[in-house]
Amino acid sequence: MQGVGKLLISMGIILCIAGVVVLFLGRFNIPLGKLPGDITYTRKNVTVFAPITTMLVVSVVLTIVLNIIGRWMK
């Protein structure tokens, strides 16, 4: 059970760090969510937003960062 507790604490810390990063990205006007390829569909009472390009960029960056961390930890 101690392993599960440590895992939950680690995930909580990672989520807090991710939240702080998102807050800082918003203050520095980095256009995540407004990149070319992000789809926004608006009608009278409905808005659908699909950030396809943003998801791809975030995925590539996280893959690179996690691979670097994984190789460093070995």
Rank of each mutant, 00 (worst) to 15 (best):
M1W: 02
M1I: 05
M1N: 08
Q2P: 01
V4F: 11
V4E: 06
K6N: 11
K6F: 12
L7R: 06
L7G: 06
L7H: 07
L7E: 06
L7W: 05
L8G: 03
L8W: 04
L8R: 07
I9A: 11
S10V: 04
G12F: 07
G12A: 08
I13A: 11
I13C: 07
I14H: 00
L15M: 15
L15H: 10
A18C: 13
G19M: 03
G19K: 02
V21E: 02
V21A: 12
V22W: 10
V22Y: 07
L23T: 12
L23F: 14
F24T: 08
F24P: 00
L25N: 09
L25R: 03
L25S: 10
G26F: 04
R27F: 14
F28P: 01
N29D: 13
P31K: 05
L32I: 12
L32Y: 05
G33V: 02
G33M: 03
L35N: 00
P36K: 03
G37V: 05
D38A: 09
D38L: 04
D38Y: 01
I39T: 12
Y41G: 00
Y41N: 03
Y41Q: 08
T42E: 09
R43N: 10
R43G: 08
R43I: 13
K44T: 11
K44R: 13
K44D: 10
N45G: 12
N45R: 11
V46H: 09
T47R: 13
T47D: 01
T47C: 08
V48Y: 04
V48H: 00
F49T: 11
F49P: 03
P51A: 04
P51C: 05
I52F: 13
I52S: 06
T53S: 14
T53F: 08
T53L: 07
T54G: 08
M55Q: 06
M55N: 12
V58E: 06
V58I: 15
S59F: 15
V60G: 07
V60Y: 07
V60K: 03
L62G: 04
I64V: 15
L66N: 10
L66M: 14
N67L: 15
N67F: 12
I68C: 01
I69E: 05
I69F: 09
I69K: 05
R71H: 08
R71A: 09
R71K: 14
W72Y: 13
W72T: 12
M73V: 14
K74I: 12
